[in-house]
Measured scan of single mutants.
Amino acid sequence: MDSLLMNRRKFLYQFKNVRWAKGRRETYLCYVVKRRDSATSFSLDFGYLRNKNGCHVELLFLRYISDWDLDPGRCYRVTWFTSWSPCYDCARHVADFLRGNPNLSLRIFTARLYFCEDRKAEPEGLRRLHRAGVQIAIMTFKDYFYCWNTFVENHERTFKAWEGLHENSVRLSRQLRRILLPLYEVDDLRDAFRTLGL
């Protein structure tokens, strides 16, 4: 685990949702873990991680939370803000982990979509996460503002959007929607068949 708060310049560089993210070879993951008790929730931990020694950050987080003694009788909500969406292998590990821990839910807000040039399996990884109940969305100004005030050593500076933040968020949201769209259509068809008694 690194220091509790991320350096301001590092956050702006790593999380910037630019179309061509040249040189950004690491994934950063800011997280919040909450325990839900009926209508209220309690923050248990927050911080950030990054890839280390060739190990992807998603797997580092799974190792980290596996060391906790999570009460199977309580519900936990984990929220990630990531600089890149998970690769196919990490998505598979996360989905398997969630299946083994049904009392834990995960939301992922990502700055950019990761696509490995040689495999093109990453969209299927995102669909697999979605099927496992993970809520996946692209970061918007509101999410960047929250991260800036929660995870960044900002020295009381106000978060300022860079040129193109909104447009890139919209573009990436549409792309993510197209990736997940087949799932929505299949769910709609299943509901229609059930309604018709087929």
Rank of each mutant, 00 (worst) to 15 (best):
F115M: 12
F115I: 07
K120E: 06
E122W: 04
E122C: 11
R119A: 11
Y114E: 00
L113R: 08
D118H: 14
D118A: 15
P123V: 06
P123E: 06
D118N: 14
E117I: 11
L113K: 00
C116I: 08
C116L: 04
K120G: 06
K120W: 13
Y114Q: 02
C116K: 06
R119I: 06
A121D: 05
D118Q: 07
F115H: 15
R119H: 14
K120N: 10
F115R: 07
K120L: 08
P123T: 03
Y114I: 00
L113I: 00
L113T: 05
D118F: 05
P123H: 13
D118V: 00
P123W: 04
A121G: 06
P123M: 13
K120M: 09
E122T: 05
L113N: 03
E122I: 00
K120A: 09
K120V: 06
E117P: 06
E117T: 14
K120I: 00
D118Y: 09
R119G: 15
A121F: 00
R119T: 13
R119Q: 12
K120S: 11
C116P: 04
E117K: 09
F115E: 03
L113S: 09
E122D: 08
A121H: 08
R119C: 12
R119D: 13
P123G: 02
K120C: 13
E117H: 10
Y114P: 07
F115N: 06
E117N: 14
Y114C: 00
E117S: 13
P123Y: 02
E122P: 05
E117D: 15
Y114D: 09
Y114H: 04
L113P: 05
A121T: 02
K120Q: 06
P123R: 15
F115L: 07
Y114R: 02
Y114A: 02
F115G: 02
L113W: 03
F115S: 05
R119F: 11
D118T: 09
A121M: 11
D118S: 07
P123S: 04
C116H: 03
L113C: 03
Y114N: 00
K120T: 10
E117Q: 14
P123N: 10
C116R: 04
Y114S: 00
L113M: 05
E122S: 08
R119K: 12
K120R: 15
C116G: 07
A121Q: 14
E122F: 10
A121P: 15
Y114K: 00
Y114F: 00
E122Y: 00
L113E: 09
C116A: 12
E122G: 12
A121S: 07
A121C: 00
R119V: 08
E122H: 10
E117L: 09
A121N: 08
F115A: 04
E122Q: 12
E117A: 11
P123A: 08
D118M: 13
P123D: 00
D118G: 05
K120D: 09
F115C: 08
F115K: 15
D118E: 11
P123L: 11
L113A: 07
E122M: 08
P123K: 05
A121K: 12
E117V: 12
P123F: 04
C116E: 00
F115V: 07
C116Y: 10
Y114M: 03
R119E: 13
L113H: 00
D118K: 04
D118R: 14
C116F: 11
C116N: 09
C116W: 08
E117C: 14
E122K: 03
P123Q: 14
F115T: 02
A121Y: 13
C116M: 07
L113Q: 03
E122L: 04
E117M: 12
L113Y: 07
R119L: 10
C116D: 00
E122N: 15
E117F: 10
L113V: 08
A121R: 13
R119W: 12
A121W: 00
C116T: 04
A121I: 00
F115D: 03
A121L: 13
E122R: 02
L113G: 09
K120P: 04
F115Y: 15
L113F: 10
P123C: 10
E117R: 08
E117G: 10
R119Y: 12
E117W: 06
Y114W: 03
L113D: 00
E122V: 02
R119S: 12
C116Q: 00
A121E: 05
F115P: 02
R119M: 11
Y114L: 02
F115W: 14
E117Y: 09
A121V: 11
F115Q: 06
E122A: 10
Y114G: 03
Y114T: 00
K120F: 15
D118I: 00
D118W: 02
R119P: 05
C116V: 13
K120H: 14
K120Y: 15
D118P: 15
D118C: 05
C116S: 03
Y114V: 00
P123I: 07
R119N: 14
D118L: 11
